[in-house]
């Protein structure tokens, strides 16, 4: 079980958080302009990397704020945590 440093509350147990899948997938501004394939790409396709992965997390049982996390999925090491809208600090 991880210890996660919420950018608003500080260190908390993983049980207070929920993971929200891959980060930096922006909802298309004009979905109606997209082909089925393009929409499916946004809707369904996720990388699920073994290694460095950019993820969304929410402090669900805390401040309810969403934030981003860079995590090495091979050993669960959290490389960085940054607020929504901020640029990833690594790579």
């Amino acid at each position: 079980m991880f210890v996660i440093h919420c950018p608003y509350c500080g260190e908390r147990e993983q049980s207070e958080f929920k993971a929200g899948g891959e980060a930096h997938i922006v909802r298309p501004k004009q979905p109606t302009e997209l082909s089925d394939d393009q929409w499916a790409e946004y809707l369904f396709m996720r990388k699920n990397i073994k290694g460095i992965q950019f993820e969304r997390w929410v402090h669900f049982h805390g401040c309810r704020k969403w934030f981003n996390m860079v995590r090495d999925t091979s050993n669960d090491e959290i490389k960085a945590i940054y607020k929504m809208g901020e640029k990833p600090p690594v790579k």
């Binding site: 929200g20 704020k65 969403w66 929504m84």
Partner: peptide
Amino acid sequence: LGKLEDYLQTEWP
């Protein structure tokens, strides 16, 4: 509530 917060914070801040 979680879903609404998600859109509000991440897609339509």
